[in-house]
Computed example of a mutant assay.
Amino acid sequence: MDISTIESENVTTAGPSFPKVAPRRTGRIGVLLTNLGTPDATDYRSVRRYLAEFLSDPRVIEIPKWKWYPILYGIVLNTRPQKTGANYDTIWNREKNESPLRTITRNQVEKLAAAFANEPNVVVDYAMRYGNPSLETGIDRLIQQGCDRIINVPLYPQYSATTTGTANDQFYRALMKLRNMPSVRTLPPYYDEPAFIEALAQSIESHLATLEFEPEVVLASYHGIPISYSEKGDPYYHHCVETTRLLNERLGWPEGRLRTTFQSLFGKEEWIKPYTDATVEGLAKEGVKSIAIVNPGFAADCIETLEEIEGEVREIFIDAGGTNFAHIPCLNESDVGMAMLESLVRRELGGWL
């Protein structure tokens, strides 16, 4: 056997055997709308499972685990699921057997997909930070449809580590499990985007035009966070205040008619103020008879807007002496809201489309 034969045999037999994998790019782009989440049902076990995932997130509850978990698993998760489940039950979508948040988010997906109908390589889907469908599931569904590029779209206009931050955390945790990872982007907070402010203003003006009364005061109520989070550098409070300022400027209202407040307090720690419930009670006692509340921090109506604002806060205002109360719906899947969302997504897809 000559040397050429030996060399030939070494070339053909040496080294490991690799599976044949198609390396080609598919060219499809995934748009993943991400919202907070929802329990799958209103029963104790479903709500407990959801709350356990939500309240064990260190981005949401920054108390050390050794101190927080005995409270969470010993008290909170044994008592809170019943009350939360009852609250969800008052707003539950009976026809589809799901929360309004899931219904609205799915509708947003369908409308955004229709807006991208002229872009056949764009696939739109959704996921939840807590509950189902999970971010891992959402990413997998897009990959299964051939997406090698994905933009995560956290539906939180104002940035907070407790919302956008943890949604991006979970998005990247899911990617860490993949051997073949897609290229990714995330939508920045859009609290001061002209398109967002314009969509809010048009929505408010349209709704107020349907009322039989004119609100003396309109509250822009945002979900609160503990003051300590702001002191550590979370920009959320400043983003909320700026949204209100820009919105009032666009509406052209006199100073004091549109006010910023914060809702959905949890625990004993002091949260950013003023509080929505205390504000509406104070307004009623001061003689204000007509108010309206809008929620510029929520992309879709959910338990915090439909049960807390439309239910609990309305009752506080009326019981304190108020007469007329209106809750202005979130942008949801409205035409102005979807046009705004489409414009932001198209901009962030620059270079990909």
Rank of each mutant, 00 (worst) to 15 (best):
Gln170Ala: 13
Tyr172Ala: 02
Leu175Val: 05
Thr186His: 06
Lys177Ile: 09
Tyr172Pro: 03
Asp169Glu: 15
Tyr172Cys: 01
Ser183Glu: 06
Pro182Arg: 02
Arg185Asp: 06
Met176Trp: 11
Met181Gln: 15
Glu193Leu: 09
Phe171Met: 02
Tyr191Lys: 01
Arg173Tyr: 11
Phe196Tyr: 15
Asp169Thr: 15
Asp192Tyr: 07
Tyr190Lys: 04
Leu178Thr: 02
Lys177Cys: 05
Tyr190Cys: 07
Ser183Leu: 04
Pro189Phe: 04
Thr186Ala: 08
Val184Lys: 00
Lys177Arg: 14
Tyr191Met: 07
Met176Leu: 14
Tyr191Asp: 14
Phe196His: 13
Val184Ser: 01
Leu178Asn: 00
Tyr191Leu: 08
Asp192Val: 10
Arg185Lys: 15
Leu187Met: 12
Arg179Ser: 12
Thr186Asn: 09
Asn168Gln: 14
Glu193Ser: 14
Tyr172Gly: 01
Tyr190Asn: 05
Arg185His: 07
Pro189Leu: 04
Arg185Phe: 09
Val184Gly: 00
Asn168Lys: 07
Ala195Phe: 07
Ala195Gln: 13
Leu178Asp: 00
Asn180Glu: 12
Gln170Ile: 12
Ile197Asp: 06
Asn180Leu: 08
Leu187Phe: 03
Tyr172Val: 04
Gln170Lys: 10
Tyr190Pro: 09
Asp169Lys: 06
Met181Ala: 13
Pro188Glu: 05
Ala174Trp: 00
Met176Tyr: 13
Arg173Phe: 10
Pro182Ser: 04
Ala195Lys: 08
Glu193Cys: 10
Pro189Trp: 05
Phe196Pro: 08
Tyr190Asp: 06
Arg185Pro: 07
Glu193Ala: 15
Leu187Tyr: 02
Leu178Gly: 01
Asn180Ile: 12
Glu193Gly: 03
Arg179Ile: 15
Lys177Asp: 10
Tyr190Arg: 00
Asn168Trp: 09
Ala195Cys: 10
Ile197Phe: 06
Asp192Ala: 14
Tyr190His: 11
Leu187Ser: 03
Glu193Phe: 07
Ile197Cys: 04
Asn168Ala: 13
Phe196Glu: 09
Tyr172Ser: 03
Asn168Pro: 04
Phe171Asp: 00
Ile197Met: 05
Asp169Pro: 06
Pro182Leu: 01
Ala195Glu: 15
Ile197Ala: 05
Tyr172Gln: 09
Lys177Met: 07
Gln170Asp: 12
Thr186Pro: 01
Pro189Ser: 06
Arg173Leu: 13
Leu175Phe: 00
Tyr172Trp: 11
Asp169Gly: 08
Leu175Gln: 01
